[in-house]
Design a protein around this nucleic acid. Structure first.
Lengths: 341, 341
DNA sequence: CCCTACACTGAAACCGTTAACATTCGCGAA
DNA sequence: TTCGCGAATGTTAACGGTTTCAGTGTAGGG
């Protein structure tokens, strides 16, 4: 392995000069710098990160931590976030990917090891981790989940607004019995989406029917099960807001299996707008949130934070947008009548 | 930041003794070791990786490289692979995730920076990267794509066998006109799956009809387009093997949009068995390949390779398995007749 | 012609660890 | 008593960079 000293010898200068030349120090005469650069290139010199990091007290590493790689995180999530992050992050940063749950010793997550940390958070259970990072003085941005703490930088979709938009849409189509399949208990997004949903109902003068609130956990299966519970009710809703697309797919399957046509007998609205949403049958009406964008904005924020740690934390909410497709339509006449009685 | 020297001072020993004690050297008296360990814990000591890596000439980092994060890699892929890898990898390894396309300077991928590298490869275009890594003497395992070079360790699914199984299944259901929507041109998996498919046809005495071979690129859209080309033919197939599930979903949509019922008028078989396959409508008959397992086995191999670099490279093929669901069934009588003429 | 200032380069210390090479100590054999 | 030896610990030199501080050489001003 060749080092700056080898280059120094070859160039007939001191290794200090080589170091400076390679780092673009203004102290070095332009032609010296060039000569050294050329020699370094010829010798295929690659700087030793460990040595560099040791003396500069940096790690050159950004850590991406997920709530849980196993559950609750749909795969397109990870992918989209990764795209957004990589695209924004300078190439010579190392980006590591971890599950928060996999971290057994918090002590191993340390300012020496990470220059900055991104947390893709879903649940308040991540808080222990988040506050550990913050206490350790590591630049930190929490993605995806809205945080209450203004001291921590945060980029998330507007879950509540999205929930509201979903319910608004159902209302405008003419539905008056609108159900909801909720996300995983304990996840902030679940609470927010339901809250927005309820707000919309109230705003339109509808009284939420507790029987039409069914718990799910963001998995396809839970959507299936929840939908069955809804279908079995005598006074079942004519439209259901599923708090993510996975559950909407599950719900759609439940409808098919029980001879309930979508959207003829039942309107379905999802959340996330993952790739498959438009290829569902019927294509899924849903709320788009851009994890890609969250990744991108979050990374920008993190970089800023690393450059000037004194700056105050920033909260940013990215809008969520209704994407009307074909899984939600006006209710059948019968149910409209039933409502108008 | 506290270092072994601080601990040494606190314990009244030399820093060498601390280093040895903390690393479990047999040279240290048990009670000394214990005392030092206790002090270290009390002081919240965290070793400095950079310093350690500098002197041991390791990087403590494993790199996971993807053919392309943007195209051709479905997201559940990344997720599953990651699960398999993380589960197998010792927690104190850093695992970085990169797109091969994002690597602008091959020189930056270097034995100093990575103790080992996993390549999730799809296409021969990755070869430049792969051989660079190998030439650099970095322990390497190529995942997911079958390699011709026995000098490089390799874990992949049995694509050819899977293709064969798909065609066999269609044949056994009674189909005699079997089409194929091929994967992305240039991807090894595309070639292998087609090959297996063709082999099966020949084995059953069917002559492959060139018009029934349509190019796709593994995207949902391409599956849609390709299916339309197939549907437009006068002598269209009664069953189509789609070289991945994404394209099968696209193909299914094309059928719906053209009033062709699945599996009534058209049987569809996919490949991968991604999560959504069983929630398609109808549930998708497909070939299961476990990316998770590929990740797991590949990591095991890599670790072995890092521990004893002298060992010869290993090729491992994980089986692929037919998962019959409802998107493929016996052909309608009319077409059976047409065939029997 | 000398002195100073400035532009450039070099020497040496340091970052936190590990490892090769002493050193100390106590004990049993000669 | 002395010597040798092994167990336990210490000294010191790496590892490959950056940075502080101390030169050098040259040009410009007096």
């Amino acid at each position: 392995m060749i080092t700056i000293k080898d280059i120094a010898r070859a160039a007939g200068v001191s290794h200090t000069t080589v170091s400076r030349a390679l780092n673009g120090s203004p102290l070095i005469k332009p032609d010296t710098r060039e000569r050294i650069a050329r020699i370094a290139a010829e010798m295929n010199y690659v700087p030793n990160d460990s040595a560099k990091n040791l003396v500069t007290q940096k790690s050159n590493t950004i850590g991406l931590f997920f709530s849980s790689i196993d559950q609750g995180t749909s795969s397109s999530f990870l992918m989209d976030a990764l795209k957004g992050i990589r695209q924004t992050l300078n190439e010579n940063y190392l980006l590591t990917v971890n599950g928060i749950d996999d971290v057994t010793h918090l002590g191993r997550v340390h300012a020496r090891r990470y220059d900055g940390i991104l947390v893709m958070s879903q649940t308040e259970r991540d808080n222990a981790f988040i506050y550990h990072v913050q206490a350790g003085g590591i630049p930190l941005v929490v993605l995806n989940r809205q945080l209450d703490d203004p001291a921590i930088s945060n980029v998330a979709a507007d879950d509540r607004g999205g929930g509201r938009a979903a319910a608004d849409h159902a209302y405008e189509l003419g539905h008056r019995q609108i159900g909801i399949i909720e996300g995983r208990a304990g996840f902030k997004s679940s609470a927010e989406r339901r809250l927005g949903f309820t707000e919309s109902l109230m705003a339109h003068g509808l009284t939420p029917n507790p029987a039409h609130f069914v718990q799910g956990d963001y998995s396809i299966e839970s959507g299936y099960e929840a939908m069955i519970k809804l279908l079995e009710q005598n006074d079942r809703p004519t439209a259901v807001f599923c708090c993510n697309d996975d559950m909407a797919i599950g719900a759609m399957n439940a409808c098919f299996d029980h001879g309930v046509s979508v959207p003829g007998d039942m309107s379905l609205i999802g959340f996330d707008d993952m790739v498959f949403a438009r290829y569902a049958n019927p294509p899924l009406t849903t709320i788009r949130k851009s994890v890609f964008e969250i990744g991108r904005e979050g990374t920008k924020l993190l970089i800023e934070q690393m450059e000037r740690p004194d700056r105050p934390a920033v909260q940013r909410h990215l809008g969520s947008e209704l994407i009307p497709r074909r899984s939600a339509a006006a209710p059948a006449v019968a149910s409209r009548n039933r409502d108008s009685i």
